[in-house]
Design a protein around this nucleic acid. Structure first.
Length: 169
DNA sequence: AAAGTGATCATG
DNA sequence: ATGATCACTTTG
């Protein structure tokens, strides 16, 4: 099938972040299936990445990033917005990709709001069985690499690291 | 430019 | 226990 499985996610975070561009985020709610093309992602690496939640090591929140690839990592930010990430890398190595926008929804919090995604998906397998999954796109789009958003607390090296990937329309 | 909102992390 | 901070959005 076209459904992405664990082998897709068990690779380097940057590769997964780039390859996710052009694929379809899919959500089943009742009898309806929503599908929207992913157009922007960000890679968050392991302990060395000063912008990543893994920078403090394994904590209650970040431990999911160290665990098995192919599950969702969803957390609440600013007291009101849910962020949707996929866990990457082999078990034991931290990594996650933030899905920042799709062709229909500009902004990570608007996306989760539109797809009715919240922390109940944290740690859940990325699979149609759980009504939230990703399907392979027809072709990998051209993209540009940019600094990530909203991480001013990190040092210059990481603030400027081109770990945001945006598909060219 | 600044509010709004609550989980999370460090510190005590 | 408390306090500062935060991978955002909306409004002015």
């Amino acid at each position: 099938m076209n459904v992405l499985d664990e082998s897709f996610f068990a690779r380097s975070t940057q590769e997964v972040a780039q390859d996710l561009l052009g694929s379809f985020l899919c959500r089943k709610i009742g009898n309806t299936v929503l599908k929207s093309v992913i157009t922007e992602t960000e890679a968050y690496l392991d302990e060395k990445d000063e912008a990543s939640h893994a920078r403090f090591g394994k904590t209650n929140r970040s431990k999911i990033m160290f665990e098995s690839p192919g599950v969702w990592y969803v957390y609440l930010i600013y007291g009101m917005h849910n962020m949707l990430n996929v866990v990457t890398e082999q078990t034991g190595k931290a990594g996650a990709v933030l899905i920042r926008e799709t062709i229909d929804f500009k902004g990570p919090a608007k996306l989760t709001s539109a797809f009715d995604i919240d922390r109940k998906f944290n740690g859940v397998a990325i699979s149609p069985k759980h009504n939230l999954w990703i399907e392979k796109g027809s072709e990998k789009p051209a993209f540009e690499s940019l600094p990530r958003i909203g991480i001013d607390y990190a040092s210059e090296k990481w603030r400027k690291a081109p770990l945001r990937f945006k598909a060219k329309i």
